[in-house]
């Protein structure tokens, strides 16, 4: 299975997430070596590829909190045969969605103006910065999502089970103890 043509091509990204789900992928530990016989990476934080190309599986961590998130997410959906939402943020908005009931400008003022130890006290306003949304949304409110893998983060074992089920053509199914929302 080391023929690159036969490998399953996977892209991953973190939108409004903390990269905790990506860290949890590393908890697959030495099984990663076996996994790398079966897969190859397209855009991921590991490869530094900037744009997602045609892939078999796209794995998206984090919710959608700004315009750039939407562009990345739509690029993933367009290029990936199977799109997976991983972690609480991608599935429910998660911790970032706790700002959904606070006025966005109040949030900015709290972070950039009222917080102690800040120089200048200016809210960043560079045109290169992506436009923030007033609310954080789960990714399935923007694109169609094929599979959900909950957890904050899902354990390495849950990710391993999910991926091996998927790679072996089985409908992914978690054991009771692998399914959690925290």
């Amino acid at each position: 299975m080391s023929d690159p043509k036969l490998k399953v091509r996977i892209a991953t990204c973190s939108l409004a997430g903390c990269f905790g789900c990506h860290m949890s992928v590393l908890d697959i530990d030495e099984r990663l070596l076996g996994l790398l016989e079966l897969i190859e990476f397209d855009r991921t934080p590991l490869t530094d590829i900037k744009h997602c190309g045609p892939c078999d599986v796209g794995i998206v961590e984090g919710g959608v909190c700004n315009a750039e998130n939407v562009h990345v997410l739509k690029e993933f959906r367009k290029n990936c045969k199977v799109l997976v939402a991983i972690g609480a943020c991608a599935i429910t908005g998660g911790i970032p969605a706790m700002r959904n009931n606070i006025d966005l400008w109040d949030c900015f003022q709290e972070v950039y103006q009222y917080e102690g130890g800040l120089e200048g006290g200016q809210v960043p306003n560079d045109p290169e910065l992506p436009l923030p949304f007033d609310k954080v949304h789960p990714i399935n409110e923007v694109v169609k999502v094929d599979y959900f893998l909950p957890g904050c983060p899902p354990s390495g074992d849950a990710i391993w089970r999910f991926l091996t089920d998927l790679l072996n053509g089985r409908e992914p199914k978690l054991d009771y103890e692998m399914l959690h929302y925290d």
């Binding site: 911790i95 706790m98 789960p138 399935n140 999502v145 399914l179 925290d182």
Partner: peptide, 28 residues
């Protein structure tokens, strides 16, 4: 607004537990 990762009741919550029992993978 059920944000399990920030909730003290997580793991002891019946709403969460029923969702686990029913195999809820997302709130849909």
């Amino acid at each position: 607004n059920h944000i399990c990762p920030s909730c003290e009741k997580s793991g002891n919550c019946q709403l969460q537990a029923v969702a686990y029992y029913l195999g809820m993978m997302s709130p849909h």
